[in-house]
Design a protein around this nucleic acid. Structure first.
Length: 752
DNA sequence: ACGGTTATGACA
DNA sequence: TTGTCATAA
């Protein structure tokens, strides 16, 4: 092994798997003389993958079908598919049972085709509400599953029917306390596991072979951990079945990428384990397009531009070459996945980051009048409103941005393929307001879409344009500042009077609303005034606005939350660790591979401190840091201390409170018409939440990069997690320019 | 433009 | 920050 490679591996080690390192106290100092010792001491797998984690990916089997079969048990065991929209060719299939798949029914089929392929197929329609598909039943069912799976280890809701679990701690504990080899008997569900690379000879008993593999006393430490992971996941899957009646499949591996691959390998209702020793062979034969994130244009480029067929074939290219071709981040990511390396963290997020409601109007259904657009926008906004209100009720979260997306065509002239631009504005709670704002956003988009000229199209038919899809979404959803957030809880008794209030949300909604003139004339809005001039028919429609002006009050929305907050980290981490791009797949090891990172200095500092300063310094205690923070905030004379009525605003240390002083402003409270109290609530992204969130690292009273990481060890595990999220490094900006089209994925080599 | 709808994330 | 694009299920 070359020195360069050694160094690379070592440096990765230094930053990888902090939790495990903490546990095993394997502090890699990065000293030359330690190379040999470390290489000998480290299990091979851990050296190569920098990754001793136990990650599971759980994938529900044809989930929508299962949900329908649960409510209609007579459908169980029958070839079944879920369709939406019956009118055109029998509707579109969106989920197909495994019985139906055996008959040759595929997801891309229409209802009619499915009937053709499988006459006995049972077609169930997606529920319809307000003239559009409504997926709530599936969302709720997905939440049921999550609440079972999140019992053990960190859990990330990856989609409506997929979950990642970090089972490292649970597996390590099991290995120490009740390792598989010590067990009398092992659950049948575990013995049905598929172990990649485990050869099952003809005539031999597969379950017995699996049992032997799981209980091997001479297995590597890595394999033993995976064996524990398999036991845990099988148990969780059985629990899911028992509590929800749904079956699922799972993959167990050392990272997310491999776990995801594995969960799809044996479906339905089975699980697959990926020992490190099987990875090379697995990737060597894995078609490029099967890898997550390579199913699109990037994968096509790898095939057509580099002539690759399998992921393993990426091994022939140097990291530098891949970077030249695909950019720094994508290049490194590709180099890593070819080796089965993927440092993405399991995020610990059980709730979605946005809500959306949309509908397409294909072909002849295209909307040709503003009135019809308004009608559908109203429907969509009503659903959206319902969803964000539920989120507020159930999760105490507030959405701050409203976005409108549309697609439209233009007949006839010139640039008829211009895209309809998406538009967004601050989100004001209340169905009416959302509807109003959405319409304004649409009109702004339409104006851009059509160009400055012909803007008029009232109720009557127009033959210039047609809208083929509409959607509204609510994003930037943050938990309301809460006295029960884990960190606040933890420090609640130790900090000098954090002025956390126990005021309930209802009180806020009822009382915090200042009465203000209902007119919007004087308010600075995000939608420019010109909009109103160009659309006189909008008269009377208020502008979406940022409620920052003097008549708006700041209000304290701290409240009791009752165990909801632990589900989500209220403040997104400053770094992008744990995210995967598409256009630019993230390098999973930017921080673990300092060669690539320009802003590594702080990271290195952190790493060095961690390695060198293991002793707690007297003043490095986390408590002191918070006290300092608190003091500095106080002495800085917090901007948002009081609201218009002189009511003190929370300066509690909820995560977003720490990074951004807590304040929500409200406006237009008086004129609202709905009976729902939520209708009165305005979550405009004012105050400093939005302003400060992206600068979280600076928003504290001290430089977050200067925290000695060892102090974190003082905290309870869940709090530690939260801190590590904040301390996670940021991704390296890509310096290579690239367009979005496929041809741009393959850049000419500028170095020659 | 009948693979729809919903969701996530990077980048300009 | 907003808007666009890419990707996935």
């Amino acid at each position: 092994m070359s020195d360069g490679k050694k160094k690379r591996l070592l440096e990765r080690e230094e930053f990888a798997g902090q939790k495990n390192e903490r546990k095993r106290k394997q502090h890699l100092e990065g000293k030359e003389e330690d190379y040999r010792r470390i290489e000998e001491a480290m299990p091979v797998a851990r050296r190569e993958t920098c990754d001793g984690r136990v990650i599971a990916h759980v994938d529900m089997d044809c989930f929508y079908v299962q949900v329908e079969q649960r409510t209609q048990p007579n459908l169980r065991g029958l070839p079944t598919a879920v369709i939406q929209y019956n009118s055109y060719k029998g509707g579109a299939l969106i989920a197909v049972s495994y019985e139906a798949r055996k008959c040759g029914v595929k997801r891309s089929m229409r209802g009619d085709e499915a009937k053709e392929a499988c006459p006995q197929i049972q077609l169930v329609q997606v529920p319809v509400a307000r003239g559009k598909a409504n997926l709530n039943s599936y969302r709720n069912a997905g939440s049921e599953v999550v609440s079972v799976l999140s019992q053990k280890g960190r859990c990330e809701r990856a989609s409506i029917d997929e979950v990642y679990l970090d089972l490292t701690d649970a597996a390590e504990t099991m290995l120490m306390e009740t390792p598989p080899e010590s067990m009398q008997d092992i659950e049948d569900e575990v013995l049905k596991s598929h172990i990649l690379g485990l050869e099952i000879k003809d005539g031999s008993d597969a379950k017995e072979e699996v049992r032997k593999w799981l209980c091997r006393s001479d297995a590597t430490y890595q394999d033993k951990l995976l064996a524990c992971g398999a036991l845990i996941v099988a148990d969780l899957r059985m629990q899911v079945l028992k509590e929800t009646e749904f079956t699922c499949s799972a993959g167990v591996a050392h990272n997310k990428m491999l776990a995801k691959l594995a969960s799809a390998m044996n479906k339905p209702a089975q699980q697959t384990v990926v020992p490190q020793s099987s990875v090379e062979e697995l990737l060597a034969s894995l078609p490029i397009k099967k890898m997550k994130h390579l199913g699109g244009k990037l994968g096509s480029s790898l095939q057509s531009d580099l002539g690759l067929n399998t992921v393993g074939e990426l091994l022939q290219f140097s990291e530098e070459k891949l970077q030249q071709w695909y950019g720094i981040n994508t290049g490194t990511w590709l180099w890593n996945i070819a080796r089965g390396i993927n440092g993405e963290e399991v995020e610990g997020r059980l709730l979605p980051k946005s809500h959306g409601s949309g509908k397409t109007f294909p072909g002849p259904q295209a909307l040709k009048t503003i009135d019809s657009v308004q009608h559908w926008l109203n429907e969509l906004c009503e659903e959206l409103n319902e969803r964000i209100n539920s989120d507020l009720d159930q999760n105490k979260r507030i959405a701050h941005t409203l976005t409108l997306h549309a697609r439209a065509y233009k007949t006839g002239d010139s640039d008829s393929n211009r895209k309809f631009p998406s538009k967004s504005c601050p989100l004001r709670y209340g169905a009416r307001k959302i509807q109003e704002d959405a319409l304004i956003l649409f009109q702004a988009g339409l104006r851009d879409f059509l160009g400055v000229y012909n803007s008029k199209a009232h109720g009557s038919e127009n033959n210039n344009w047609g809208v083929t899809s509409l959607s509204v979404s609510a994003s930037k959803i943050v938990p309301i500042p809460s006295g029960t957030h884990s960190i606040v809880k933890y420090f609640g008794g130790q900090l000098p009077s954090s002025s956390t209030s126990n005021q309930s949300l209802d009180v806020v909604i009822d009382e915090a609303a200042p009465s203000s003139p209902s007119g919007s004339e004087n308010r600075s809005g995000l939608i420019p005034c010109e909009l109103r001039l160009e659309y006189p028919e909008d008269k009377g429609i208020k502008h979406p606005k940022a409620c920052l002006d003097q008549q708006d009050s700041l209000c304290n929305v701290s409240s009791e939350v009752d165990g909801l907050t632990e589900e989500s980290s209220p403040m997104p981490p400053p770094g992008n660790e744990g995210r995967m791009p598409h256009n630019e797949p993230r390098t999973d090891l930017p921080a673990k591979d300092p060669r690539l990172v320009s802003n590594t200095s702080s990271l290195k500092a952190v790493g060095k401190k961690k390695a060198a300063g293991k002793k707690l310094q007297g003043n490095s205690s986390i408590i002191n840091i918070f006290n300092n923070y608190h003091n500095s905030q106080s002495s800085m004379g917090q901007k948002n201390v009081t609201n218009a009525q002189g009511v003190e605003v929370s300066s509690s240390l909820g995560s977003q409170a720490a990074t951004a002083s807590v304040s929500y402003s409200t406006c237009n409270q008086v004129e609202v018409l709905d009976e729902n109290p939520h209708e009165e609530f305005d979550a405009t992204n004012s105050g400093s939440i939005i302003a400060n969130a992206p600068h979280g690292r600076q928003a504290w009273g001290y430089n977050i990069n200067e925290i000695d990481p060892s102090i974190i060890d003082e905290l309870p595990p869940d709090i530690q997690e939260e801190f590590r999220t904040w301390l996670r490094p940021q991704k390296r900006p890509n310096v290579v320019k690239r367009g979005s089209s496929i041809t741009h994925y393959f850049l000419p080599d500028k170095s020659r």
